[in-house]
Every structure is written in C-alpha cells, then in structure tokens.
Design a binder for these strands. Structure first.
Lengths: 347, 347
DNA sequence: CTCCTGGCGGTAATCGTTTACCAAATCCAA
DNA sequence: TTGGATTTGGTAAACGATTACCGCCAGGAG
C-alpha cells in the first residue's frame, strides 16, 4: 500500500536513483542494457513517478488553471471541453474553477490556483473592471491567456472571436432576409463581449435605421433575462426581428414569444450568438453566430504553451473569425428536419 | 519575480522557518507578538504558501480528481459544477478529466490523476465491464467514489440516484395520465444506469402490458440516437407514449416527432430522465425524472472527504430518491409559460 | 539555591524527484 | 603505452514546506 518510490526501483534494478531518473526522463544517454534493467524493475514494482516531487524539483507542475464565470453555460462548457482536450494532448492537466459569476469568488479561485503553482492560467474574466486587478496580478506571476472576454491593462495574451464582425454579418443577414425594424436584447456592457456586441449592433443596425437605436434592451446573458425582455417587446410595438447578444437570451426570448402565441419567423424573426448545441434542437432552429469553440480552445492552449517555453515578446491579441449560421428562426431554412447533433452519452 | 518563500518571510520577521510555518498552519502555539510579527512580514512580502512543497511533505495534495464520460452532456456538466462547489467549500481543488467516451482514454486519465497524487477520485465509469479494472486499480491506491454509474467488484463507495424508483414512478405517471401503449427508447445496458432504467421499465411497464416488451429500442445516450429511434417509431405502429432513458434521447425523439408533423402530447406523449435545464426551455416542456444534482455532488464529496479522514469501514452504496416532474409533454401542464431557468452568463 | 516542568523557538531531517558535479571506465590516436 | 576526450554511473545538493526533537528560559516547589 505504501507508494513505491524511485529508491525502490533503483534498489530493485541495482542502480542509483540518478540512473533511474535518467532512464525515465531521457535527460541523458544510458547504456541500453541498463535501460532494460531499469524498465524491467519499474515494471515489476509497478512504479509511476510522483508528479508532485518532480514538479517541485523542476519548478513546473504540468498543470494549467482555468477559471470561467459559470461552467453551466453551454458555451463555457464547450470551451472547457475543447481546452481540456488540447491540454491533455500535450500532457498537461487542467485545474478547473467556476467563478460563480462573482468577482470575489473569481479572485479567490485565481489565488488558490497560483498557490497550487499552476504553470499558466486561462481565464474568462467575469467583469471588465472588477476582474482587471486579479488578472493583472496573476499575469505578474505566470503566463495568462484571456479567453473570450478581455480586461484592459493586463500584460497577457488574449484569444477571442471577432464579435464586431459576427454582429455585422448578422445585421447584414437580417437585412438581406428583408427584416427592417430590428430590436436588440443584450447584456449590460460590463464585460468585453457584451460591450463589443452592443457596439457593433448599434454601429451597423443604427446606420441603417435611426429608429433601431431606441429598441435596445440590456440585462444579462441569461435565459431569464431573455424571457423578461421578450415579454416587454411583445407588449409594445413589435420589430420585424430580434437580435440577441447570445443564445441563452435568445432561448428566453423565444420562450416568451411562443408563450404569446407568436410564430417564429412568420410573425417575428430571432437570432442569437454563440451557436450552442441546442440551437439546432429547438423549433424553430436558431440562427446564430458560430463561435469555433474547438479552435478557440486549441488556440488558447497553443498560445499559453508557447509562452511557457519562450516568455519573450509582446502580448498578442488573437481574433478568430466567427461565421453566421442561418437557420429557420430567420426564415433562412424551410427544411423541417434539423442538422445532426453529436452530443452523446447520458446520466 | 522570483517566488517568495518561507525563508524570506522568516528572515524578514527575524524568526526561523519553523516558527513561520507554525504561525501559518496553526500546528502549535506561538506567542501572540511573534504571530503578529510573522503575519506582518508575510503581508509585506505578499507571501503565499507553495502548495506543492506543502503537499509533498504532508503527503496530501488537497486535490481530488474527477473523470466523467463526457463533459458536454448537460447532466455531467451540472454534476461537475455541483462537485466543484462542494469541493471548494472545503478547501479542495478539482482536477477535471473528460473520458471522451472511451475506456482507454478513461484509464489513461485515471493513471495521470493518480500520478498527480490526487487525494481521492470521483468517477462516473463509462462502461460497466471495460471500466471495472481501472476503477478497481484506482481504489487500491486512493479513496474512490463512483458517481451516477457503478461498476461491480471495486472496493469503493458509490452515490447515485435510485433509477428503479424513478422509472417506476414515471411509468405510473403515464398510466395515470391514461397512456396505455408505451414504447421505450434507451441505451444498450453497457453501464449501470442504462441497465437499471431498462430493467425497471420492463418490470413496471411489462407488468401492465405484455405488448410493451416488444417496443423497446436500444442505442446510446445521445440525441442522434433519439432522432433515429423517433423516426423508426413514427414509421411503425405508434404507441401512446414514449419513455426515454435520458433527456438527450428525448430531445432527439421530440425532434423526429415534430419533424413528422406530430403534436406532443396530443398525438403522442413523451418523457425523459435527468431533468436537464433545457427540459423546461423546449416546447412542449419535457416531463422528466429529476436527478437532484446538487445533492448528488455534495453527497459524493462528503463521502469522499470522510473516507480521507477515516479510511475504515465497508464500502457504502448511497441511493438518493429522484422525483418525477410532470410537464407539458405528458399532458400534465397546460399552462403555456415555462418555469424560470436560472442559467445565467454568456459567451 | 536547586531541580523540575511547561512553554516555545531553533535545528535539521524529511517528502521524492532532478541534476550539477565528480570519477571511473573506455576509446582512440600517436 | 600514454594521455586526452568521451561515455556513463554515482553522490549529494537542491526544490519549499512540515515536524520530531532539542534546548533555553521562566516559574514554582522544596
């Protein structure tokens, strides 16, 4: 039951711990017959190196920390999944933390991650201002990559989608589909994505129609907010289409619309942002802006790991191009059957 | 930039590292004035203890590993979230791994978790047979709690919902609602939850109607499978209601039904299992068996932590009672507006 | 004044690796 | 045969905390 150490392997093989270590890490040439002997001994004892001790000595844990505002948001879930996969591919572990949508919890999580000596940090900062200090502080200790959202003033790389572009294309798409009067249901711009999407909407929709400036409802990124905003819109003068700042909001709005007996897109069109898996599982299927989650995750990991090897260079801002996915909710597809959805397994 | 160590604090405070350590861990009484001096020095230097070194010495990392078959399944996401919260509340960290629905990947993940010296392991084993060896092996090294699914032959605790009970209540509910002819869309019983739900369905539905034994379609726990099975059912002689082994399957089936122009529950009723968040966001809202995810996670963590302090005692099987949630899809609610959904935040 | 006891700070061993440095062995050319 | 270069294994010092053990000092009893 007592863990078997390198000492044991060394004794068993009849060599020193140094030699065993060299065989295992390949840090220096060892005679082939010795290698065989050591490997055999290792096999016999079922030895696996203690990463803790190794990490302490090498000053690198092979672990990166990740903090997201809330795991249960499907977009973040997908991001976590993509990151986890990329990390494991390069032999790293993931220490995951949920910030519980609170700057305080978030800061505390970052602190414990640093205390656990993570080699680097991936963070989706909750709030553009309240999270800034904690991100800056972290960036002084280890390489940090901001993901999806960005706070200013931190010396760190960032990876996100080009929200401006995505929103612009969405507005254009709606125009092409013939929807003139638009409304926007978004989030208070307390973080970069909310702010960018709002700004882009105003810039592009406002340019076409001065009226649109008035039909902007701001809350948070939740379904609950979508439901409320949807109700408000139905109560007033109806626009031709509603643009939402993310899919969760759109789901809420849709719920409200259907609840009032409205048909989408016949009575009113609807569009979201993120393209979460459920966008194709509801009726009507939801037009959205696809965030290439796998790419985002992979790119973030790649950026972080490259910082780990060579720390030089200026912070880089990486922006990935999103892609609009037209579906039934904006009258783009009439085919009744949805695209496949690969989410397998179950509880 | 160089990390500040306990040495530095000791020097700054004018005491030895032993004293500093004692102040920080509270392992022994230290004179109040000395405590103040040490704390002041710590504050001045911004010292935080290196968990790595501490863990190596104490032989405990304060970290537990968790392996789920696939994070993107909303049920597992919710479970992870609950676990993460409970763990952090007791000062532990979570090393999360996605098994990618493969016994090999799963086994590899377990091995790296053990190499990282996790204090304990929470695992949702992918396959009743193929995952058994790896769970057993892990249970020999650290306390293991199996969550949601169970493999036999491992000396470990387990926490799960009483699937038998949940399915029994669902069948009874459908009977009360007046649905006689049932069909079951489930997963091949390659894991305990699939097996238990199938067995319970057969026991209870079969008891009422010999015919029901024939209307059992088995695939996996995915939406894709639900879509296919739904199509097959529509093509043949239609039952009055379809019982699904989880909500993802139900979503797929629903998709197929709606795609064929059928109305739920007027033409055919539908029920799921798990009660994931989206069950209330689709139309019709989905009748399901609620798994109390927060309780499951909390109980699993509690069980694991108690094993960490006192290793004695036989393995315990903890079964939590699920609760059926009747909604529109079985004609239980006619109210059009859905219940609130709290999933906040967004990408 | 001596001796014992309890409180408390310091010294150094320890957790399990990695690796700088040393030394023995081997090899090759002259 | 010799002397330098090259392998390659061993010794021991880190990494940064925790803690067993030691010893000093103060105070109380005799």
């Amino acid at each position: 039951m007592a863990r078997v150490t390198m000492q044991d392997v060394a004794r068993e093989a009849g060599f020193s711990v140094a030699t065993v270590s060299r065989v295992l890490t390949g840090s220096r040439r060892v005679r082939p017959d010795v290698v065989r002997a050591v490997r055999a001994a290792q096999e016999r004892l079922g030895y696996r190196t203690n990463q803790l001790a190794s990490a302490l000595r090498r000053q690198a844990t092979g672990t990166v920390g990740m903090v997201v505002p809330q795991i249960s948001n499907p977009f973040f879930t997908a991001l976590v999944q993509a990151v986890e996969r990329s990390l494991h591919r390069s032999g790293h572990g993931l220490l995951l933390c949920d910030g519980e949508e609170s700057p305080d919890v978030e800061a505390e999580r970052v602190r414990t991650l640093l205390a656990r000596q993570v080699d680097g940090l991936l963070i989706v900062p909750y709030d553009a201002e309240q999270s800034a200090a904690c991100v800056r502080e972290a960036a002084n200790e280890v390489p940090v990559v901001q993901l999806d959202r960005v706070v200013s003033g931190a010396k760190s790389d960032s990876v996100a989608v080009d929200n401006e572009l995505g929103m612009a294309e969405m507005v254009r798409h709606l125009a092409i589909q013939g929807y003139q009067q638009l409304a926007f249901v978004g989030s208070q711009p307390t973080n970069s994505t909310a702010a960018e999407r709002l700004r882009a909407y105003l810039a592009h929709a406002g340019a076409r129609d001065e009226n649109n400036r008035h039909r902007v409802l701001l809350g948070d990124f939740s379904t609950a907010w979508g439901q409320k905003a949807g109700g408000d819109i139905v109560a007033g003068e109806m626009p031709a289409a509603i643009v939402c700042a993310n899919d969760l909001i759109a789901l809420g709005v849709l719920d409200a619309l259907l609840g009032h007996g409205l048909h989408v897109p016949d009575d009113i069109a609807l569009a979201g942002f993120d393209d979460i898996a459920f966008a194709t599982l509801i009726r009507p299927t939801l037009t959205s802006v696809r965030q290439p989650v796998d790419e985002l995750g992979a790119e973030a990991v790649r950026t972080l790991l490259s910082r780990l090897s060579r720390k030089d260079g200026m912070p880089r801002k990486i922006r990935i191009q999103p892609e609009i996915v037209p579906r039934q909710s904006t009258g783009a597809t009439t085919s009744a059957s949805a695209e496949g959805c690969s989410g397998t397994s179950g509880g």
